[in-house]
Design a protein around this nucleic acid. Structure first.
Lengths: 339, 339
DNA sequence: TTGTACGCGTTATCAT
DNA sequence: ATGATAACGCGTACAA
């Protein structure tokens, strides 16, 4: 009942033309919904297509049109981090929505090793995609270099790369951090620490810079605990360390909600009341924020919109519009119960 | 300093051949590391490649080789669920590892609308990929049908599809559920409820069936609360409903760890001791499990291995090996503190 | 409105 | 070991 098993040759335009008794040119025109085809020819082609089971060959089409109608989203992270990052999912949603609308296929590529990196570069070079959106690129990234060298229409999200004139879309991490920390200071805290993460990229650096600015005189370098990852575990470890350094801390700025969640659990476990004795704020407004008790005060990062805008930037470049520069989206403070 | 801006024509083999002063055939041989090329020719080609900045065109190559060396991973879920599902990330890791090893590019495609579905089918048809791995397919899925019709080498993960002879890789949800629920019963609980999710697919159905079998006489249909999603929120709502239906419940089987986490929070909030008054077990052994207090007893799902095996199944088919049938991987019980 | 014929950039076959 | 040349399947001027 499952039809012939042999992988019989795929039908081509040629076969359709023969079946319909007309030329290949006309068949092609019908397939591409071009004008100047008689209704009669159209019908004949459609019938023939159905009969021979024709499906168009993308490689051949791409070869001649020099386009693939596909856009890559490159996630340049160790895989384990990908699943924990609440923003990536939303960025994906936004990107896919815009691309889908424009009839482009989003293909997600992940890089988890040198080998992956090389292969992805080959993939980009090969012309499998017409453009790329790059997440969390680091400085001196081979991917960024390849994109530049290929002059591939691209947009970087979450990271203003080295070159100043390259299109990117992000948020002002520094200003956002400064704003929420100021507000934390406004609640009367004086010994405020930071659980800093991701210092190998702009987001981490900038949040720390904003923290420092907001604190001014109050800033104490001893109260900054560093951890490479934006993770729950980083929060657990960081908070423990922070309490060790100074048991009198009364405020905490966590570099992300996941970090804040870890810190919160440490505080709970030690019976330290939040926000009574310690006020804590996070960053992202991810699903963690509402899952915490008390609900986390945090910076809302417009992740989905970031994805939409990045996709749009790439499409614009494809459409011949001039390369846009960088764009910073505004952030909001979601003030809840943790501070 | 950033080089010419004009998108000058990409160099082709032809250009390389001209530059090196040899034929295109030899250039192609060098590029593909084929034997029977003189060291001299090899050098000349390498120099020419560097000089003219040649990169091979994938479309042309795919057209003639009829292969793309790319494999699709199709995530057939509403996007919002994707980020919450802890298994997907691990499946991805496993799949990518195997494919990377075999020098194939993994491209992740997500489907979040009818439009997406149609486009992805077009993508598959177009020959952009040599095979596909399909996550959480549902019965009667257009994607599954397209894959079958195209005779595309494929492997379904997490779902034994309708057709009995199609390759898939999964776990025995029913047996796993039965095992952990038996163990829960073994702790002396008598009023055990289930927070059932994902009933529109095999995993949900099978876990419920296993639950029922394990309970035997103890089974009470009133104690099964259904929710379409495997989410934290489903756990919150479900647990509330369960307590409403019978405040004396002393055991809960949550269809996933996320669901269990939600249920646990409800229990905490009402001051119901776990595992003292209520024992609760989950499913997945995801990052949720250890994040809960008390740590969750749960079924360990070998997600990464699922991904590896699925990838291998596809590669095997590509290699001409016979289509493998379905494979069920064993699961373990991680017994911790929540029951 | 339709057909013809060329070109897209590679690989593969067959002489040499 | 290397060089011609024919596919691969499609889009598209250009001619009719």
């Amino acid at each position: 009942m499952s039809g012939p098993r042999s992988p019989r040759r795929r039908a081509t335009i040629h076969d359709v033309a023969a079946e319909a008794g007309i030329s290949r040119g006309t068949v092609s025109r019908v397939l591409n919904n071009e004008p100047y085809v008689s209704a009669q020819a159209r019908e004949a082609v459609e019938a023939a297509v159905a009969k021979v089971g024709y499906v168009r060959n993308a490689a051949a089409r791409n070869l001649v049109t020099q386009r693939s109608r596909a856009i890559a989203l490159i996630v340049h992270e160790p895989h384990s981090v990908v699943l924990d990052d609440p923003n990536i999912g939303n960025i994906l949603i936004g990107t896919n929505a815009v691309l889908s609308q424009a009839d482009h296929q989003l293909v997600t590529l992940m890089i988890d090793s040198q080998r992956d990196s090389d292969r992805v570069i080959e993939y980009l070079r090969g012309g499998f995609v017409d453009g790329a959106i790059i997440l969390s690129a680091r400085t001196g990234d081979p991917i960024s270099e390849a994109v530049a060298e290929l002059r591939l229409p691209a947009s970087f999200v979450g990271h203003p790369p080295d070159a100043p004139d390259i299109p990117f879309i992000g948020i002002d991490n520094r200003a956002a951090a400064e704003a929420i920390v100021r507000r934390l200071v406004g609640t009367g805290r004086r010994r405020i620490g930071m659980l800093a993460s991701g210092l190998d990229r702009d987001s981490g650096e900038d949040r720390l810079a904003g923290f420092r600015t907001a604190l001014g005189e109050l800033f104490d370098p001893d109260l900054v605990v560093r951890n490479p990852f934006y993770s729950y575990t980083a929060g657990v470890d960081g908070m423990s360390e922070l309490l060790r350094r100074d048991p009198t801390v009364d405020g905490v700025f966590a570099a992300s909600d996941a970090v804040a969640a870890g810190a919160l659990d440490v505080l709970h476990r030690r019976g330290i009341d939040v926000p009574g004795r310690v006020g804590i704020v996070g960053f992202d407004d991810s699903s963690w924020a509402l899952r915490c008790t008390p609900a986390l005060s945090t910076v809302r990062q417009p992740a989905e919109d970031l994805g939409r805008r990045a996709a749009q930037q790439v499409l614009d470049q494809l459409g011949g519009t001039d390369r846009p520069g960088g764009v910073l989206l505004p952030t909001d403070i979601m003030w809840r119960d943790s501070a």
